[in-house]
Design a protein around this nucleic acid. Structure first.
Length: 432
RNA sequence: GGGGGUUUGCCCGAGUGGUUAAAGGGGGCGGACUGUAAAUCCGUUGGCUACGCCUACACAGGUUCAAAUCCUGUAGCCCCCA
């Protein structure tokens, strides 16, 4: 029997933005285990934090005893969803798409139980790719089956279409048709898998309701939709993006350390929402953390908890341990004598450059040159300036003399020197 | 096709024939403060083993002891007339 309080939980977490027929949905969820689906766009071979809300949403349903379907849009990804996009998208090649689908699928195992370990089968998650049922669907048939049930008037009314029509970039017929594909997915899943609920971000509302309408027309069945708010910062930007790009779940794209740091630096105004949306931290603790943030924001109790919870969830205990160790070292004091092995573990993310060991001999290795070799400065002038300004550190000890020469006495371990410019820009020099 | 204007450093924007590597602002980068924050304040922002040298104000020439500043041509942008 499914748990009764799923909707209650989603409500306190603020995860319900819009919902069709709330009472009906509540009854449905209470009556028997249901199947819920969310679509994922395979635009890259890794998910980023923008998808985490969706995955956690499915996970919450699964925990409550329902069956989640993660639908990877192999077919719809070939078209491109115009929702929330200001410009026509580039189409992905079939090979690239397959690669992306594979990568994304692997990451989902962190979030959802696909039944690999056995256990009760009714709530095992299913991974599907809509390419399976779309690839053989002929255009003529599709127009007769699906297109027939789509009033253009209603399509034109959708926000995603309207905003694009009004913009300069316009909207191609291909993207205009996207809605039909997603709507049909819902119908297909309800027919083949008994899926009556589609969830998604609030930007999916138009596509979801399109599917509900289509379900009524084609199957005479009532389907349900529920959307979550988008995870944005208090000033309205999407979360999960930094100047240097998205925060990925793939540790080779975004290391556990960077992942951890991202969450640790979340603004006070956003942190509680992140905890509610992205973690499974219980309500009682949530209230405590909220209280701690209000009374003593400087300690960032909530940020630390958020960062630790998510890092451990996504990267495991070991990933978290590494992130914590690196953080302690990078933001701590001096780097004492270390071994190469421990340094390279702690500074796994830090770019390193190799330099011939000979430079340390004789009169030594000029620090201005070292900064350039470490790629922390683009020119000698920039390097000199950085030293003069007191922003350069060797093994976390400030170096303020631009004439300084480095010798083997400055090595932090057998072959490595840690150079830093400013607060957070580290680089390793390996003398070989 | 004719006429006029404009073109400055990462961006915007001042600029007198000679202390102009170029005011001011933004952005970037450092530093202080702080909570690895925000706000604020300070410094810095062409290159060079460097109290000096080199390269720079669309591009190419010219006038001058001296040019971002004057002249000619070329290109980009803007406006007006046909």
């Amino acid at each position: 029997m499914p748990e009764q309080n799923l909707l209650e939980e989603l409500t306190w977490r603020g995860l319900i933005h819009q919902c069709t027929d709330e009472d009906g949905l509540a009854k449905l969820l209470a009556s028997a285990p249901q199947t819920v689906y969310i679509g994922f766009d395979p635009t890259a071979d890794s998910l980023h934090v923008g998808s985490m809300m969706q995955l956690m949403m499915l996970r919450r349903f699964q925990t409550a005893g329902h069956r989640p379907i993660a639908l990877v849009g192999g077919a719809t990804g070939m078209i491109g969803d115009p929702s929330g996009k200001s410009e026509e998208r580039n189409l992905l090649s079939a090979e690239q798409l397959q690669k992306n689908v594979d990568g994304v699928a692997a990451q989902m195992r962190r979030f959802l139980d696909f039944g690999d370990a056995g256990g009760e089968a009714s709530s095992h998650a299913i991974l599907l790719n809509n390419f399976e049922w779309m690839q053989g669907y002929s255009y003529l048939e599709f127009l007769r089956d699906v297109g027939k049930s789509f009033p253009v008037g209603a399509m034109m009314g959708k926000e995603s279409v309207r905003s694009r029509l009004e913009s300069e970039s316009g909207l191609s017929y291909t993207e205009f048709s996207y809605m039909l594909l997603q709507a049909y997915d819902f119908v297909h899943l309800s027919r083949e898998h008994g899926c009556l609920i589609q969830a998604g971000g609030s930007d999916q509302w138009g596509n979801i309701t399109a599917g509900i309408d289509l379900g009524r027309r084609m199957l005479g069945k009532q389907l349900f939709g529920i959307t979550a708010p988008l995870l944005t910062t208090s000033d309205g930007r999407k979360m999960g993006k930094t100047e240097s790009g998205a925060i990925w779940l793939d540790p080779t794209r975004t290391s556990p350390y960077q992942f951890y740091q991202y969450w640790r630096n979340v603004d006070d105004a956003d942190v509680m929402r992140c905890i509610a949306y992205l973690t499974e931290i219980e309500r009682a603790e949530y209230e405590e953390l909220n209280e701690a943030t209000n009374s003593d924001p400087g300690r960032r109790t909530a940020q630390n908890r958020l960062a630790e919870w998510l890092t451990e969830f996504v990267h495991g205990q070991e990933g978290l341990a590494n992130a914590l160790r690196a953080s302690k070292m990078l933001f701590g004091g001096e780097i004492g004598v270390q071994t190469d092995a421990s340094l390279s573990e702690i500074f796994a993310d830090v770019p390193s450059q190799e330099v011939s060991r000979d430079v340390l001999e004789g009169e030594g290795y000029w620090i201005v040159q070292a900064l350039q070799d470490a790629k922390l400065a683009n020119s000698g002038g920039e390097a000199r300036r950085a030293v003069k300004e007191g922003g350069v550190y060797v093994n976390n000890i400030r170096a303020s003399d631009e004439k300084q020469r480095l010798t083997s006495a400055d090595l932090a371990s057998e072959t490595v020197m840690v150079i830093r410019k400013g607060k957070k820009n580290y680089a390793l020099l390996r003398f070989v």
